[in-house]
Design a protein around this nucleic acid. Structure first.
Lengths: 338, 338
DNA sequence: TTGAAAGCGCTACCAA
DNA sequence: TTGGTAGCGCTTTCAA
């Protein structure tokens, strides 16, 4: 490995001072066009790449952003969100030369410490807060740490900049689709209620059903997992008043629900319509193909990154709303048959 | 945010030179016990956290390792490997104060550039190379860049340190289990052949089947995906000589295979036994529960991290072999019935 | 417009 | 055993 080319080498080659090189290469004023051109040429010839470390040390920036995923790897295994979300983040931060520091952990206590260490080490210039919970302790923490942060899918009026994808329209469209099909008993398989996005979906379901003059059906917690969805099927399909349709808070629990329903001898959608939320690939392949509401994690990641980099630059950023999640009707929902 | 506490502050408080502080806090010799104690006390009282940047700049280390996932986020969506693998990496690097820089990308050309940039920026001190392919261009690249690297599941005798989990024993056990059940036509649904781990599994299947004096059944490419597994079912179950058992190169394609088989009117395992490879959670919940070979991505991550940090420290490390992948018999395989 | 020099926070070397 | 100091590579201020 050849010795690293430094700003000193460039300055020497261009016959100028290093400060001029710095100014020229960073597009700062105070350098004549001729000099700038000469410096750029020298830098090119030498293959100069500014040292991140030098820049960090003097500029007090890490040129990195952090994402702490608070989730057990086993549960994460089937999660459709993060891979795309991270892809979206990177598609934005790459240009400005930022990198993503990722941490995965399941211990709740330790999680806050991870943010503390990221901040103490100046490892990152800002963080993303996803899977927000009500009274999420990370919110006061990042504030205390002075760590720029962007929240994902929090409520409007949240105490930090937020990027959000509207869920209500999609759920409303789904419920309308079901009501149009003659459904009156529409149940809900929710995620853990302490998650904001979980609660949001439940509320949207209630509101949408009520807006049609109906009473919301039964609610069962499905924990966002395949097994939880299957358990919910056991519960909802055994009891007396069976729903004719069920909306699950995510696709994975909907697929678990369908599988268990089939196992119990019910046919989807003839005996019960099932819908999910997320729009994961798998939903297109299961039998019957899953009706769902398609979200845009990649887009959320991209916008979150854009906002975070602006925050880091010291600018104020308004909340961002991306295109709403959309209803995608496939084969797992249909009209009531009796 | 209060001003950062620096080594200068600690030195002032302890009434010593900063060089002594550095030595004392880094456990280097040349400091008396009394002085060391005084310095530690001062550092504690001040809440001193050494600046990563300062250390990086002067020590020429980034205190970070990199993982570039070369995969389309949509495909990654259901991948069981990376979340656990990353969890394993972190459980080791946390202590030494390293962080993980993650990049996800699907563009093959761009991927090599990512490694180049990670190296040029000195963003990381080393990288993990997973999902190795035959003649993988990353291998010469990291060598050229002088970037320490650890390979995951490559062949013995690979040109860089490797951590490996034996797959042969598990596949042999599975094939024995099938042969014991009277199966003679055992097909294989493979992953893309350019992947080393994919080719390994295929070869192990061939060897195991032949070791029982049988001829390997048909081979179909399932692309490691649910849809690919389903397509493979279409192919294998329609033709004349149907296999009585099929081994899929990963669980996801096995689950797709089972789903499509059911859809085509076949019952698993009565009409055909199906087995996967990986041991993902989902396999426990599908109907029938999937027989599979359980791998240890978390353990691979942990060992890979340990090796990489040693490499970074300039030590030579021998290849590591973790406990072999194990056969887990569930309900999707059974004796031949006719 | 240009250049010199002072940091940024740390490590490591060399003298005292 | 201690302390002083020269880097590490850059940004930024201040003179020239």
């Amino acid at each position: 490995m050849a010795d690293r080319v430094t700003i000193v080498d460039v300055a020497a080659r261009a016959g100028v001072a290093i400060s001029s090189v710095s100014s020229a290469l960073n597009g700062r004023p105070g350098v004549s066009e001729a000099t700038r051109a000469r410096i750029v040429k020298a830098a090119d010839e030498l293959g100069f790449v500014p040292s991140l470390r030098g820049r960090s040390l003097s500029g007090k920036k890490a040129f990195a952003v952090g994402l702490v995923v608070h989730r057990d790897p086993d549960v994460l295994e089937l999660d459709p969100f993060f891979a795309s979300f991270i892809g979206g983040i990177e598609s934005h931060i790459d240009g400005p030369g930022f990198a993503l520091v990722l941490q995965i952990g399941s211990d709740p206590g330790e999680m806050l410490d991870r943010y503390r260490r990221l901040a103490a080490d100046n490892r990152v210039d800002g963080v993303f807060l996803s899977e927000l919970e009500t009274d999420d302790p990370r919110v006061p923490l990042v504030r205390e740490l002075g760590l720029p942060a962007v929240g994902i899918n929090a409520e409007p009026g949240f105490s930090m900049p937020v990027v959000r994808q509207d869920h209500e329209a999609g759920i409303r469209a789904l419920v309308s689709h079901l009501v149009d099909g003659g459904h009156t008993r529409i149940a809900f398989v929710g995620g853990p209620r302490h998650f904001i996005h979980s609660a949001q979906r439940e509320r949207a379901w209630r509101d949408a059903v009520e807006s049609h003059g109906l009473t919301p059906g039964r609610f069962v917690e499905g924990g966002f997992t395949y097994a939880g969805g299957a358990d919910a099927a056991d519960t909802l399909l055994s009891g007396g008043e069976r729903p004719t349709a069920v909306l699950c808070a995510n696709d994975l629990s909907a697929i678990g629900f369908m599988s268990e329903a089939a196992h119990l001898g019910f046919e989807v959608p003839r005996d019960i319509s099932v819908a999910g939320y997320d729009g994961i690939q798998l939903g297109a392949y299961v039998h019957p193909a899953l009706t769902t509401i398609t979200t845009s994690p990649r887009r959320l990641g991209f916008e979150a990154a854009r906002m975070l980099l602006e925050l880091i630059d010291g600018r104020r950023v308004p909340d961002t709303v991306i295109e709403p999640a959309e209803l995608l009707v496939r084969a797992s929902t249909g009209p009531v048959s009796d």
